[in-house]
Structures are given as C-alpha cells and as structure tokens.
C-alpha cells in the first residue's frame, strides 16, 4: 500500500483518498458499510461553536450530473462534536481533518482552538466558503484580505496545521490562494460548491427553500480541475482536491492538475462504497499508467513541459 501513501503537513496518509466534509457525516453511517480504517483521512462535517439546525427543507435538488444542497451547516455544536463524535472516531486508526465554520472570526478562533487539541484531529480545514449561511461564511471566502485575516487568527490558536477551503465563487482564485498562503495556511482544499439554483416547473418558484444552494458532483469537476491547475502553479503549499470525484481515473486527473491528495463528496451518496472502491482501483491504474508512486502524478499537467525543456541527455 506504500505506493499510495502521502505525507502532508500534519497528515501521514495511508492513501490520498478521504471523504469530503458534509458528505460523510461523522462517519457513523458509513461504518456500517466498511471499516473506516482503510480511508486516508476523514473530513468531518462543519463544526460551529453553538449547535445549528440549518435551513428548512427541501435542502437538496438534483441537477444535470450534479446536485444542489443548502443544508446550512447543521451540526450539534463544538462541545458535542468533541465529546461524542470525535470520541467515537477515536476508536479508528484514521486521521481526522476537522472542518471549522462560523459567522465571525471569533467563532473560527473558538472552534479551531478547542477542536485542534483533540488527539485524533491532525489538521483543520477552515471553511470560509460555505455558500449556505446568511452571515459571514462566503464573505470570508471571497475577499482576499478578510480570508488572510481569518487564516492568521486561526493559525495563532491552532495546535495542528491549517488547510483553508477555497470557494470557487470568485473571479480570481489565485489571488485568494495567495492571500491565505500569506496568512500562514499550511495547505489548501478546493473546491467548495458553486452557487446555483433550480426552479420548480409547476410553481415557478425555487426548489430549495433557501432559494440558492451549492452545486456539487461530476458537473463541477472541470471547474475544480481548472482552478487546481491554476493555483498549484502559483503557491508552494499542497492542495487536497475535490469536486465531482467518483473514480480512480478522476483521482489521477486531479493529481495531474496539481493535487497531492483528494476528497470524495457527493459520490458517497450514489455509492456508499465509492471510497474503498477507488482505493482498491488506484494501484492497478498506477500500473497501467506506468507510475511507481501516486505522488509522481502531482502537477504533471504543467510539470511535464518543464521536465522536457530541462531534459539534457
């Protein structure tokens, strides 16, 4: 299995495949299907200082090759996430990446400082990009200066490395990435969902009660690849890529674009076994493509050119 292992700040990953935040709850449901130990890591559902109920239903709507969601960061709050969910996950040999959310900087600081002290939490994922909360959330993720400021504040209190989750709902993703890198981010995760909408043919009204929601699934894969391709060439911190991944081939494509690990979101809903299946398929695919180790694939889309020009026989 060592040809799949990946070393990232704070994370010794058995393999580069992990479920994405919000698409795997806190792992309990999927533990009925397979042993969570086989995962590279688990990105848990966003945690806020206080419990949140989230938005009214309908909270999901289907789209062409994708779905919209407007869950609204429902979670039991920091205290319960630590005492119940993370304690339960402690029974597994798998690093946890805690997704940290809030509506103001003090919220992020509070959650980050407490949750990063839990032994199985090996990294934080700063969610400055959730499109479904009214205050804050996305505003943090669309203004470079603000994003940098939150990152800095969280870095000061966190006991583990901090990855910042970028929103694709910006005109210049590289600028955002650079801002959080300057703020001290140890890594990036990208992308979060794209803001979208569906309307009901009969009523003429939005299907989602929140009106808009975040688009995920295969539909957003090309957008994610393009953004990772651009950002990975401009920053020196690693990227965990996500957006529509459903197969081992998708994983390699994300690595080529510049990712060093990947997360699988929506595909878990379609096939609860998708993560184990991908992990099993990857070595075969590496053989077919002629790679010894998966990290050889990272950034191949743009590194290859460099390698050719530097080539001296």
């Amino acid at each position: 299995m060592s040809r799949l292992s990946v070393e990232l700040p704070g994370l010794h990953l058995k393999n580069p495949v992990m479920p994405a935040s919000g698409c795997f709850g806190f792992g309990r449901e999927y533990s009925q299907f397979f042993n969570l130990d086989i995962l590279g890591a688990i990105m848990i559902k966003a945690t806020t200082p206080e419990p949140r109920f989230g938005n009214p239903t309908p909270r999901v709507a289907e789209t062409s090759s994708g779905m919209l969601n407007a869950i609204g960061l429902q979670n039991p709050g920091l205290e319960k996430v630590i005492s119940e969910e993370l304690a339960w996950l402690g029974g597994y040999d798998v690093p946890i990446i805690a997704n940290v959310a809030g509506s103001q900087i003090t919220d992020y600081v509070k959650v980050a400082s407490d949750i990063s002290k839990v032994p199985n939490v090996k990294a934080l994922e700063l969610n400055i990009s959730c499109p479904n909360v009214k205050e804050g959330g996305i505003a943090f993720g669309t203004v470079p200066e603000v994003a940098k400021e939150v990152t800095k504040a969280v870095k000061e209190v966190s006991s583990v490395p901090v990855y910042v989750k970028l929103s694709p709902n910006v005109s210049n993703i590289v600028e955002m990435a650079k801002a959080v890198e300057e703020g001290g981010a140890d890594g990036l995760t990208m992308i979060n969902t794209l803001v979208g909408m569906r309307l009901d043919l009969k009523t003429g009204k939005p299907i989602l009660s929140n009106r808009t929601g975040g688009l995920s699934g295969p539909a957003i894969k090309p957008v994610a690849l393009r953004m990772i391709y651009e950002v990975s060439q401009q920053v020196s911190i690693p990227i965990i890529g996500m957006g529509g991944i459903a197969t081992a081939e998708d994983v390699i494509e994300f690595f080529y674009a510049g990712a060093s690990a990947v997360a699988v979101g929506t595909a878990n809903f379609v096939d609860p076994f998708v993560c184990p299946t991908i992990i099993e398929e990857l070595p075969k695919l590496l053989d077919e493509l002629g790679f010894d180790h998966i990290s050889e694939c990272t950034g191949r889309s743009w590194k290859q050119n460099e390698a050719v020009t530097n080539y001296r026989p």
Binding site: G22, C23, F24, G25, R28, E29, Y30, Q32, K45, F53, G54, T57, P58, R59, V60, M67, N69, I71, Q74, T266, N268, F269, P272
Partner: peptide, 11 residues
C-alpha cells in the same frame, strides 16, 4: 441526498 443519515438533507 444519501438516504442513510449522513447528509442532513431530510431533517
């Protein structure tokens, strides 16, 4: 979404 309790769509 998921049908198994993981996504909080049906709350």
């Amino acid at each position: 979404g998921c049908g198994i309790g993981a996504c909080f769509a049906c709350v």
